[in-house]
Design a protein around this nucleic acid. Sequence first.
DNA 1: CGAACAGTTCGGCCTATGCCGAACTGTTTT
DNA 2: AAAACAGTTCGGCATAGGCCGAACTGTTCG
Lengths: 253, 253
Amino acid sequence: MVAAANLVEVAALVGDTARATMLNALMGGQSLTATELAYCANISRSTASGHLSKLVAAGLLTVTHKRRFSYYRIASPLVAAMLESSKVVAAIDMPPRRHPRSINDDALRFARSCYDHLAGQLGVAVTDALVAMGHIILTDEGGEVTPSGERFLSAFGVDLKPRTRRIFCQPCLDWSERRYHIKGLVGARILDRLFELGWLKSVPGGRALQLTPSGRRGLFEIFQVEIERGAVQPVDDATRGGRQLKLSDLLNP
Amino acid sequence: MVAAANLVEVAALVGDTARATMLNALMGGQSLTATELAYCANISRSTASGHLSKLVAAGLLTVTHKRRFSYYRIASPLVAAMLESSKVVAAIDMPPRRHPRSINDDALRFARSCYDHLAGQLGVAVTDALVAMGHIILTDEGGEVTPSGERFLSAFGVDLKPRTRRIFCQPCLDWSERRYHIKGLVGARILDRLFELGWLKSVPGGRALQLTPSGRRGLFEIFQVEIERGAVQPVDDATRGGRQLKLSDLLNP
DNA sequence: CGAACAGTTCGGCCTATGCCGAACTGTTTT
DNA sequence: AAAACAGTTCGGCATAGGCCGAACTGTTCG
């Protein structure tokens, strides 16, 4: 008896440094051109072209040709989910810090997009804040937005209606923090809003996200998430409860 | 920028036919010896030994040495989840039937264990039945056992207490059916009970499960799942509603 | 004690596949 | 029209890594 050939094919595709780097770069959700991806992976364009056509043939990526550019992107959320779950396993396996952390690594650990929602320390911190304020209930099994959460998110500018058919609110195991952050429709809309407010900016050529000064202020005021020198400071519940939200400032700037 | 080396390592390990076959064989949840796994994968024992030590070193498998045997098993449910999500992607990619189905393939599609719960046509059918009877509510986001479901499952011989810390009831995307079946504690306990009743037997050397004649009767009587010539027949809700459950027969044989 | 067996390690073979540069197509710019 | 650029295809090179058999350790059993 032999395993499903396709599982092997898919895993083998991911199991190459150059291809994995390109997939990783696309986990931000954007489309990138072949040349950009070649640059990301440190390989020639011809090599990249070969890799990319394999990934498309296997259905991991899709490509759209516009003008003289080929834009590649992750073919489906299922592919993103597969990569995330592989990363969770990879993070467990990690023998404690054999590879020295790179600067880039630290940036990714701090804040990154996980396909379409926020991950990393910041993603976990925002999730924790929403849970602590009683706006969201997260269990291993799933997530739920409470009525107060609906009001809060709506005031924050996140529109959760109409509820589309996609998964609404779900915990996603963060590979760097090994704690849950929010994915699904809720997670995606929150990230959208953070971009819209200019609180986060994407760093070109990667999935890392940069917190802007206004984002630093905003996260503190709305979510009581305090950031010092690029690291998230834990805020105890007492402090959290003692402050008034200033959603009005946000909505009428 | 370069992708996490560990993701590549993990994926590359899965991306080899022999190793994937062994992992697949272990997805039934049991422990198998090195020689058994070598036989599964059609490779010499020396080659298998090399593969297995790599898988253990990477944390995908664990090994326990007893007497003169080495028993290997999947190291964690997270590893199982990774393999399942990879298979979902692999199943999507499948260009419609390039590889002719093997007999074994059909058996797997019909019924198999997915680490610790029932999958395949039978898994989906049982899930559908529980949902149709109002015993379980499944959404994309998670699952829930209704009060009637608790009574039903309890009468069926599935004890759901004490609720351990593990995920209770969750939908799991079936790679062969592309529909949900139940995983988590509920899924695992149901499979346990089906074995206990002798309704299912495991086929040695694989994850495929065989339905026994009593299982065929039992599934029809309790779940109104009808099986003809190894394929599950859909049962419409009218028929389903028209029959009385015979749990008493089951409990006092 | 010696035979049988599970498992591992080692050395050598061989194939699969990643990589590049060169040459080509097609698009945009000057 | 020529130059610049995105992308692809092709040929050839180099290496990683899968595979086996042989030899070894350790356990079980006659």
